[in-house]
Design a protein around this nucleic acid. Structure first.
Length: 429
RNA sequence: GUGGGCGUAGCCUAGCGGUUAAGGCGCCAGGUUGUGGCCCUGGAGAUCGAGGGUUCAAAUCCCUCCGUCCACCCCA
């Protein structure tokens, strides 16, 4: 006998914390950004790739490295029913490199130019511009080590923002060295901070252990003196890194890409090497970066592939929308239907469905009024839908095989044969 | 993970201890018999985020939780 179940009160569900529904009102922004992004990427010869929303957790755990919040504290990791340990994608690059290796892309002409628009998941505390699910446009150029490609990727990103019409976007660039020179610098930085740990903030003491490069980025007033006297990475760069950066800056200058060198700029993910950069919007908030990138020459190797250089960026779509709205940027508006078909009798309703099909086949949007509403209600409805035309089907029209076509813009009205309707409202090619 | 602000119908807001929670937008209907956008009238729609407590009495005070926003942190 089944246990007596209590009548459950229906619970109201909401989207999970830090996630949101993309509603029709916001779609024009999304479509604009996606279309623009896709076009710019294709103009630069980049090809679309999409990887699964989840991966073997190792793809991210092995690559991002210890001490990075994105993976260590923020990854959604779970076991599936088969016992596999999986992770919702917290960032795009490692997943794309996994695909690069898996599909033998190293045998394609190098560099392999790839882009994607895909959601990422991070268990953060949400605030404006920071969500547990956010979408990034990502670009990766894999298999080329020279700085010309770094400049190309930055150029692509700058072009993307320019085409979106974002004003006041600024670019900061830096180099963080590589495996040859960065360890010595980290050591020097730690040696410098070790006797000063009592004078700096608690966060810095944590950074000292986990992510020493971030010490340079601390905003605490009391930590500024320490930062000012700290050893500089540029004094520790190996010759290849120094040269790479100098050449990158020269290319950027040649392209007239306005930028500033910010020696405090570092990356949260450990696999970055040499070039790093960030784009910031005109109006800075707490979540200021709208897109950031860098070189990751060691990443493919970390995933078991042959040593392969790479460079790329990710840009947050939600933050771009935030800034487009702040700037009240014009985006292409949502399409309004060309035709609304009002019907007044059961026979007319059937004819309305047929007519709608014919109109759509001719390439114009058509929506059919709901059943049982007055003509006045349907006209109001059509107006609310911002339809251009209303076709009226009542007993009179059915009897004569005609339709009344009303133009909601100039208020004119005429009768025409049913079969002429599609041609009258469809865009003329 | 830390600190702070805020949570009243789909949306915006009033009410801030005392009878049936008010208004605007939106939605639906009507303003005669087949005609929109403005206007007028009516209607539906709220366990006042959830749970607990204080009080004769709570949307109004207190606590906890949840959500949201802001700052830190981190990052797109």
């Amino acid at each position: 006998m089944p246990p007596e179940t209590q009548p459950e009160q229906p619970r109201k569900y909401a989207a999970p914390r830090g996630t949101s529904d993309l509603l029709p009102e916001d779609w024009p922004y999304w479509r604009y950004i996606r279309d623009t992004g896709e076009r710019v990427c294709e103009l630069f010869g980049y090809r679309r790739i999409e990887t699964p929303l989840f991966e073997d957790a190792g793809v991210f755990l092995r690559t991002a490295g210890a001490g990075t919040d994105v993976v260590e504290k923020e990854a959604y990791i779970f076991e599936d029913r088969g016992g596999d340990r999986l992770a919702l994608r917290p960032e795009g690059t490692a997943a794309v490199m996994r695909a690069y290796i898996e599909h033998g892309m190293s045998s394609q002409p190098q560099p392999v130019r790839l882009y994607y628009i895909a959601p990422n998941f991070r268990y953060d505390r949400p605030q404006a511009g920071r969500y547990r699910q956010h979408t990034q446009l990502g670009v990766e150029a894999v298999g080329e080590a020279e700085p010309l490609i770094d400049a190309e990727v930055i150029d692509l990103q700058a072009t993307f923002y320019r085409r979106l019409g974002l004003r006041g976007v600024t670019l900061k660039v830096n180099t963080i060295g590589d495996a040859a020179c960065r360890p010595a610098y980290i050591e020097a930085l730690r040696a410098y901070y070790r006797p000063r740990l009592d004078a700096v903030c608690a966060d810095d003491r944590m950074r000292f252990e986990k992510n020493p490069l971030r010490l340079l980025d601390c905003k605490e007033e009391r930590c500024q003196p320490a930062i000012a006297g700290a050893p500089r990475l540029r004094d520790y760069l190996c010759d290849p890194c120094r040269l790479h950066f100098e050449r990158l800056l020269a290319y950027l200058a040649a392209l007239s890409i306005v930028h500033t060198v910010d020696e405090r700029l570092v990356r949260g993910l450990d696999y970055y090497t040499r070039s790093v950069w960030e784009f910031h919007p005109a109006e800075e908030g707490a979540q200021s970066s709208i897109g950031s990138g860098g070189r990751y020459d060691g990443l493919v190797e970390l995933l078991g592939g042959a040593p392969t250089p790479g460079v790329g960026f990710g840009s947050g779509i939600e933050r771009l929308i935030l800034n487009l709205k702040r700037q009240e940027a014009a985006v292409p508006p949502a399409l309004a239907p060309a035709l609304y078909i009002a019907h007044l009798t059961p026979e007319a309703a059937i004819e309305a469905l047929r007519l709608a099909g014919a109109v759509r086949a001719a390439g114009a949007e058509a929506i059919v009024g709901p059943e049982g509403r007055s003509l006045k209600a349907q006209l109001r409805h059509a107006n609310a839908h911002r339809a251009r035309y209303v076709a009226i089907l009542g007993a009179r029209e059915i009897a004569s095989g005609e339709v009344t076509l009303r133009d909601l813009e100039d208020h004119s009205e005429r009768r025409l044969p049913l079969m002429d309707l599609a041609g009258a409202v469809a865009p003329h090619a």
